[in-house]
């Protein structure tokens, strides 16, 4: 476990550094600077602005300053939203995204695991075929198709749920559609992985041993099979976070949720360097952090790795 984790931990700063550097140079070496879009800005003001944001300095210096700020967790002022720093914007927008993501993860885990395990245990049953077809739909039909369709049916035609808006953690009604939309592909993946894991495990010799002891099906499945069946699901949870993050770009847009995803898309089109950088770094840290967490969790679930 020690060696295995160490390798993972060493990867963290490397991944972050590559990400940050790639983002930095992508943003700086692009045709069209941040102040080229506003036609009105006169050259003097522009120069002043560029000086303020260090854009007049040589690139290595800019890069150095940028890394230094980053180490101090200072993401700088927003280029476009002159009154706020990127830290402030993130602080203001992150909660909505986090709440949405959290609900989505919970929904996905409950639906995905439930359906996957039952489908695996009852292979070739009607439930198996049914849930796997639904899962395939979840995988194949993109979030941005599902979202508007759900909004159309439940929001507009049936009028049961609001189609857009956000009222904080308590405005559950507002979160139902977006959270389901975000969760669906994720739940589908989990269901398929859990089912496949279950099928693989259920034919293992040690499961036969468990049956031979006279244990009930419930115990065989929950105590003996579930753990092994969960492993592929657990290793998927890392990449899943990336999926949820990208998914939120679209879902926040569709359902008008004031989250980081929307900020990122807007920042990217406005060339708000610091904001984009800040969000990408945030996403990167989240992703890397979750991957690490998942690795640790995996180790705990599988004793063979724990002691390796």
């Amino acid at each position: 476990m020690g060696r295995y984790l160490l390798r993972r931990v060493i990867q963290v700063p490397i991944v972050l550094w590559i990400l940050v550097t790639a983002t930095f140079f992508l943003m700086r070496y692009t045709p069209g600077g941040p102040f080229d879009m506003d036609k009105q800005v006169d050259p003097a003001v522009k120069a002043q602005m560029e000086a303020k944001y260090n854009l007049d300095k040589p690139m290595p210096v800019q890069y150095g300053l940028f890394l230094w700020d980053l180490v101090r967790l200072d993401l700088g002022p927003s280029f476009k939203n002159k009154t706020m720093t990127v830290n402030e914007i993130i602080a203001a927008k992150a909660p909505a995204s986090a709440v949405l993501g959290l609900y989505a993860v919970v929904i996905a885990l409950v639906l995905g695991l439930g359906a996957g395990v039952v489908a695996g245990v009852r292979q070739n049953s009607v439930f198996d075929y049914g849930s796997m077809t639904v899962a395939m739909v979840g995988l194949a039909v993109p979030t941005f198709v599902v979202g508007p369709l759900l909004a159309l049916v439940f929001g507009i035609y049936l009028g049961w749920l609001p189609v857009a808006g956000y009222e904080g953690m308590d405005g559950l009604r507002y979160l139902v559609l977006p959270a389901f939309t975000l969760a669906l592909p994720f739940a589908a993946r989990i269901a398929r992985l859990a089912r496949a894991g279950m099928l693989e495990v259920i034919h293992q010799d040690y499961i036969r041993t468990a049956w031979a002891k006279g244990l009930s099906e419930q115990v065989v499945v929950l105590r003996h099979a579930l753990r092994g069946a969960m492993l592929p699901v657990v290793s998927f949870l890392g990449p899943a976070v990336a999926q949820i993050l990208t998914g939120s770009l679209v879902v926040e847009q569709i359902f008008g949720i004031p989250g980081i995803g929307r900020e990122f898309v807007q920042g990217a089109t406005n060339r708000d360097y610091t904001l984009v950088m800040g969000t990408v770094i945030l996403f990167g840290v989240l992703l890397v952090g979750f991957n690490l967490l998942v690795d640790i969790l995996y180790g705990f679930l599988d004793p063979r790795i724990r002691y390796a």
Binding site: A22, V265, A268
Partner: peptide, 10 residues
Amino acid sequence: AIPYMFLVIL
């Protein structure tokens, strides 16, 4: 481990 989609967007 890099969130590629964001880089592609950029």
